[in-house]
Nucleic acid binder design. Structure first.
Length: 137
DNA sequence: GCCAACGTTGGC
DNA sequence: GCCAACGTTGGC
């Protein structure tokens, strides 16, 4: 069981849309580091969804319902990109803003803070629990 | 709108 | 293999 943070620009795909869709394929990851993390995600893992851009907040939790499978891209022939499928688990009652994250000592080692551009990253169980708790307040 | 951080590309 | 130039992302 692992925990992840998935970052998305809400104007591209939002957690609200995921709630409507019930399930979606998390694709278009075109960064090797993010791709490698995606490959490690297992069915049943939980992921915090973070909205970049105007929101800048963690907005909910999703679960991985299908492990990595090919996400072919004609623009990069020969490169094996992958996608996963996720379903919503919980919408945070209160989004956990980036400023809140930065001011929470227990979250100071979150990769998001130092690597804001990385779109898929592992988080510890402790980070997951802290984010979930803050999201319920 | 700007800039910092980072990744990618291409010339050498 | 190095590094300058360039493109992209995301925060401010």
């Amino acid at each position: 069981m692992h925990y992840w943070l998935l970052k998305t620009e809400p104007s591209t795909y939002s957690f609200a849309q995921l709630l409507k869709d019930k399930k979606t394929n998390w694709n278009d990851v075109r960064n090797y580091q993010a791709r490698n993390f995606l490959k490690e995600a297992s069915r049943g893992d939980l992921a915090v969804i973070y909205h970049s851009g105007d929101d800048k907040a963690a907005v909910g939790v999703a679960k991985i319902v299908r492990e990595a499978y090919p996400d072919p891209d004609p623009e990069t022939p020969g490169v094996e990109w992958v996608q996963i499928d996720i379903s919503p688990v919980k919408l945070f009652a209160k989004p956990v803003t980036l400023s809140k994250i930065k001011s929470t000592a227990a979250l100071s080692s979150l990769m998001l803070i130092k690597q804001s551009r990385l779109s898929v990253m592992p988080i510890s169980e402790a980070h997951f629990k802290t984010l979930s708790r803050l999201g319920e307040e």
